[in-house]
C-alpha cells in the first residue's frame, strides 16, 4: 500500500511538472488550458469512485463482509470529493474560457446530481442508528444512485439538446502530443491517488470498527 502511495506522489509530481512547464499553452485558451490537467482527471476519477462504491456496495449487500463496506465507504466519500473537485475546477475553468461560472450543460448537471446523490449516501450512513445498519442503508443508496446515473445522464442530455440547440459545445480538442502526455500522466496519477486514498480510508474504517467492538467487549463480564 505504501508503494501505491509513493507511486501516486511520484506520478503527481511528474504530472504537475508536465502540466505546468512541459506542456505548451493552448492557442486559444492560453494558460487556462492547464486547468484541464486537474479537471479532467478529477471527473474521471469521480466516475471511477462511483463505480467502485457501487460494486463494493453490491458485494457488501450480497456477502455481508465488513471489508466490502469499508471500501464502499471510502469510495463514496471520494466520489463526493472528486465530483466536488471536478465541479469546482470546471467552474474556475469555465469563467475565463466560456465567460460564465455555470452553464446548464448536460455533463455539468449530471455531475452535480451525482454529487448530491452521494452526499445523501454519506448522510444516510452518518444518521443511521448503528454502524451495521448505516453500512446497509448507505450501500442501498450508493447502488440505487449508480443505477440511476445513466438514466439521469441521458435524460439531462436529451432535455437540452432535443429542445434547443446547445448554446455551448465543447471545442473539438485534437491535442498536441505534449498536452496529451501531460493529461495521461495526470490521469494515472489521480487514479493511483484514488487507489491509495481508498485503501487508507478502508483501513481507517476497519480500525474504527475494531475499536468500537473492543470498547464493547468488557461490558458483559
Amino acid at each position: 500500500m505504501r508503494l501505491v502511495g509513493l507511486a501516486a506522489v511520484a506520478a503527481l509530481v511528474a504530472g504537475l511538472s508536465l502540466a505546468l512547464w512541459a506542456s505548451p499553452p493552448d492557442a486559444f485558451q492560453g494558460d487556462y488550458v492547464r486547468l484541464m490537467y486537474v479537471h479532467v482527471p478529477s471527473a474521471w476519477v469521480a466516475y471511477l469512485a462511483v463505480g467502485t462504491a457501487a460494486v463494493a456496495s453490491l458485494l457488501y449487500l450480497w456477502r455481508r463482509r465488513p471489508a466490502y463496506d469499508h471500501v464502499a465507504q471510502g469510495a463514496a466519500e471520494l466520489a463526493v470529493l472528486f465530483t466536488g473537485l471536478a465541479l469546482a475546477t470546471g467552474m474556475i475553468w469555465g469563467r475565463p474560457v466560456w465567460g460564465v461560472w455555470w452553464t446548464w450543460d448536460a455533463r455539468l448537471v449530471s455531475t452535480a446530481i451525482l454529487f448530491l446523490i452521494y452526499v445523501g449516501c454519506l448522510l444516510v450512513r452518518g444518521l443511521a442508528a448503528d454502524r451495521e445498519r448505516g453500512a446497509r442503508l448507505a450501500a442501498v443508496v450508493a447502488l440505487v444512485g449508480a443505477l440511476d446515473v445513466p438514466i439521469i445522464h441521458f435524460s439531462v442530455l436529451w432535455f437540452r439538446t432535443l429542445h434547443q440547440t446547445a448554446s455551448i459545445t465543447r471545442r473539438e480538442v485534437s491535442m498536441a502530443p505534449a498536452m496529451l502526455a501531460a493529461l495521461l500522466v495526470n490521469l494515472v496519477a489521480f487514479a493511483l491517488l484514488f487507489l491509495y486514498l481508498v485503501a487508507l480510508r478502508a483501513r481507517l474504517a476497519r480500525l474504527e470498527a475494531e475499536r468500537a467492538e473492543a470498547a464493547l467487549e468488557p461490558l458483559p463480564r
Binding site: I113, L116, I117, V119, G120, L123, V124, L127, A128, A129, R133, L137, V140, V141, V144, G145, D148, I152, S155, V156
Partner: peptide, 21 residues
Amino acid sequence: LALHVRGRELLVPLLLLPLAL
C-alpha cells in the same frame, strides 16, 4: 430507509429529488 435514520422524514427529499430527476 427513512425509518432507520435520525430525523426520518428530513432525509427523504434529499435522497428522492435527485434520483427522481
